[in-house]
Design a protein around this nucleic acid. Sequence first.
RNA 1: GGGGGUGUAGCUCAGUUGGUUAGAGCGAUCGCCUGUCACGCGAUAGGUCGAGGGUUCGAGUCCCUUCACUCCCGCCA
Length: 594
Amino acid sequence: MNKYRTHNCNELMQDNSEQEVILSGWINKKRDHGNLLFIDLRDNYGITQCIIDKSNENFKLLEKIQLESVIKVNGKVVKRSADTINSELKTGEIEVDINSFEVLGTCKELPMPVFSDQEYAEEIRLKYRFLDLRRKKIHDNIILRSKVIAFIRSEMFKLGFLEFQTPILTSSSPEGARDFLVPSRLNPGKFYALPQAPQQFKQLIMVSGFDKYFQIAPCFRDEDARADRSPGEFYQLDMEMSFVEQEDIFQVVEKLIVNVFKNFSSKKLMKEKFPRIPYDESMLKYGSDKPDLRNPLIISDLSNIFTREDVTFEIFKKLVKSGSKVRCIVTKNTKEKPRSFFDNIDKWAKEQGASGLAYFTIEKNENISAKGPVGKFFSKEALEAIMKITGAEVGDSIFFACGKINDVEKITSQARDKIAKDLDLIDENIFAFCWIVNYPMFEKNEVTSKIEFSHNPFSMPQGDIKNIDFENPLNIKAYQYDIVCNGIELSSGAIRNHVPELMYKLFSIAGYEKAQVDEKFSGMINALSYGAPPHGGIAPGIDRIVMLLANEKNIREVTMFPMNQNAQDLMMNAPSEVNEEQLKELGLALKLKK
RNA sequence: GGGGGUGUAGCUCAGUUGGUUAGAGCGAUCGCCUGUCACGCGAUAGGUCGAGGGUUCGAGUCCCUUCACUCCCGCCA
């Protein structure tokens, strides 16, 4: 018999009454009646109420023990009387009458209470993460994460995928995020990089003939944090398949995601076959390539309206003439909304750094007219044209933004979220997935005017390889796709370019010489010239999937030992300084900015 | 790199127009209490008001600088 316990803290029931048992766990809560003491004993599985009174020689000792101490109790299971049953607890029909106890782990005065639903400052939670993780909500989140990952593994094996590990110490790559660098002792002056993703390795696995690969892969990117983005490291369900087209990958991933979300959440899926939205359409209708499809608001382009003679909104007309765009959002039946509703949104837009949002409400007395600060600038015919383009009806309001296309996309995208929130249009009990497809292969850097890869340089361009229009690279689309859920980017993937000549050509457009490509991507470009199968894949973010399933807004709530916003681990004191010897051995000297 | 929010007891927070000795709940310590499950009751301890500087007869409160945490922009193929 195990010396610490005969049962865990969640399994004793009426059937066990009169049994002598041993339980071990943390003291979750004490209720001391002076001559009678209740102790809620907690372990990973649940809580059992234990009881002792002054007739027991241990009573005085047990009374004094700190919460969160670890103790072992020997006692007898007794049925509770009907009026003392606690229906909140699985073990609420019984209690353990303590005979003797032993302290297994003492506990100092707590820096933060464990048994409480209160929220605490992030700093203290992270410093004492081992205490924070005892708290029910986050404890359950971490267990959920484990179950989700186990489920995904099992589904992937069922689908015929093989799991492989890829190197953590690898080479730095010029594209993408900043790398974490690791100095090499045996090769002074040279550095490994931690992988931003196992991108090249998984393609090499395909070239090696393994057909279907997956991995719950750690990825490292040295970029600044956000609520849904851990600094430093995160996990992807990395996968790759040979001899597939885009649609084959969609089939596999849709099935997997639908299974996972149905299994681990009671929320409904808006559609089980995810809508496929071309990138250009998404940018127009939602102003973003990660639209929240729970939000019914749609953006329309009204630039042409501002070239009409019977529209006299001169500021916008002037901007449109010089190449700016006008985009708008229609809100249904908002004519009764107070002036403050509209002004707040305009004020909010200014706070976001935009020049504000113009608005009016469509009315009809004898004729169609527009009510609002800028309503007078629009003729009846112009309003009818706007209504035709946007689908707006009498009683609806229209918000306008004007600016350079990137700026106007950004502010209308944010306004779409903001207005929907203000009008309470978003159903929180839905997961709305979609595929964003047909990404452009290249984009122009606004600052340098150089052509750059817009996503993944290894993606296959669309169309007949022999007839791709390399003269107009910005028109080339790629077999590149993202999954988006409720406005959160869950993953991106692509059909890869497995043709070396084509790869060199695309890299040359982005300003890379052949020799540079050979050097920077030596492993892969070399492999592609020794019989590479057509292949493609995707890499859904595990942390974000669990975050959605756990209904959390912050990724730290589903990460066991996260770092803070400045990429510091407050519990382990990482990163830390190293001593002179270590630096010397690596051939490094520090030259810090003061 | 830039912008916003927060910072008062171990924890969560209140603190009025600048005005006496900075408060509450939880936690801790001590005492009372035999059916609680957020047990109850009483008492005690606990404060560099994030730090530094300034204005003022007087600063938790106003001003400047700075630090920490956090959210956002940039960044994240």
